[in-house]
Amino acid sequence: MREQPQAGETDDLLSLAGSGDGEAFRALVEPHRRELHVHCYRLLGSVQDAEDLVQETLLAAWRGLGGYERRASVRTWLYRIATNRCLNALRAGARRPHENAVHRPEVPMPEPSHHRAEPIWLEPYPDVLLEGIAEQVPGPAARYEVRESVSLAFLTALQQLPPRQRAVLVLRDVLGFRAVEVADILGTTENAVTSALRRARGALGRASREDVPLPDSPRERRIVADFARAFEAGDVGAVVAMLTGDAWLTMPPLPLEYQGPVAVGHFLATVVWRGGRRHVLIPTRANGQPAFGCYLSDPRTPILHAHGVLVLTLTGERIAALTRFHDNALLPAFGLPRSLHV
């Protein structure tokens, strides 16, 4: 991640960029690209849509450079453009999963523990894209650290908020912008920002992140290794033994949710491992959590076919949630292939 230019350098780059110097413009905005990408992802829930919106943001900034009055920092100006582009996309209903993201079950699903009224349009976010972003972003102290603010629990809850409340909560509680800055970004009043933030906090609550193993710690590595061995062996009992009593299995965007070891175990036995099917798991990380690229064995060929991304949510020594994303188009973002040879 490039270092942000100092004040004098910024003025020089703005002057050069204003005269049509593309390299100066890139030097001005590139230090903010990654955090803008995460910001758009938080609002939209999609890595692919976030990339599109960042491109739109930078193009709009280039075209609108002449109107930038320098009352706010370049960073705040870019966040204003990105946030409003995301809100426009959400209001227009333009966000829809890609065709291959809509999983069509091959067999009838067991009766779920819970059936959402609306699907959650959410994709996993590769941890590699978080590299270089400071754990505490610039600005006032924020409530959520970077990794917590992209956790699946937080993102799932966030996607259920109205777009404006979603944006206010992210700008205030995640990024640490002051109420007056958020009001300027959204073109509203401080009172409206305060009111929206209060409603968003009340609706969102806060998922407990206590006693979560540190990333790549010995405890996390042990739990992940034990899970991978049990899952690849198709050992329902071993996987179930690793779950918390209220563990969830979800498959965004499917609205079906399964809670508890019995329901999750029944799903694994009748759907995931039906007919003796076996999987190979390739470790990766998503949303600050351990994850796997899933590959399904084919007894007729030596080829393992991609079967989506599986993300674990850990609590203490156990697994609190299994989140399965079936869209194989996401695999390249994790550096994972579409197939493996055994």
Rank of each mutant, 00 (worst) to 15 (best):
H39I: 14
E30C: 02
N287G: 01
V74C: 03
W77P: 02
L310A: 01
D226S: 11
R2Q: 13
C40A: 14
A200K: 03
R96E: 15
P124L: 10
E210Y: 09
R95Q: 11
A228I: 14
I303D: 07
E111D: 07
M1P: 15
V240T: 08
G237F: 12
V239T: 11
I81Y: 04
G245K: 10
R277N: 04
I282Y: 08
T83A: 09
A269T: 09
S195Y: 15
A286G: 05
P218Q: 11
P218E: 02
A7Y: 14
S19D: 11
A50F: 06
S46R: 11
P119D: 00
A179S: 13
L87N: 00
L58H: 03
L197N: 02
L296T: 05
R95G: 00
E190N: 04
A333T: 05
Y41D: 01
R278D: 05
A92T: 06
I319A: 02
E35D: 13
A50W: 06
V29D: 12
S15V: 14
R75F: 14
S151I: 07
Q289D: 06
R2F: 09
G67V: 02
D184E: 13
R75Y: 10
G276K: 11
L214P: 02
D52K: 11
V47H: 08
V272F: 00
L44P: 03
I223P: 01
P112I: 13
L36H: 07
I185G: 00
V128T: 13
E131F: 06
F292E: 11
P213A: 05
L16E: 05
L28H: 03
P5D: 03
R206D: 00
G265M: 11
W248K: 12
A203V: 08
H326S: 11
H39V: 09
V174S: 01
L281A: 00
F267Y: 14
A92W: 06
S195M: 12
L87I: 00
E210G: 06
A141D: 05
R71A: 14
L304P: 08
E99S: 07
S19A: 15
L310Q: 09
R75G: 04
P126C: 11
S46F: 02
E111G: 02
H103R: 13
V272H: 01
L78M: 04
P140F: 13
V311E: 09
E99I: 13
L43C: 06
L87W: 02
A203D: 09
D52C: 08
T315F: 11
A101Y: 05
C40H: 01
L44S: 07
S73K: 08
L13R: 00
S149C: 10
V272D: 00
Y125C: 10
Y258G: 00
R91T: 15
G245L: 12
D327E: 12
Y125K: 07
T189R: 12
G93C: 13
V168Q: 00
P261C: 10
G237I: 13
H326D: 07
G202M: 06
D49C: 06
L59T: 10
Y125N: 03
T188M: 12
R71M: 12
Y79L: 06
F231A: 07
E135W: 15
A320Q: 03
D211N: 13
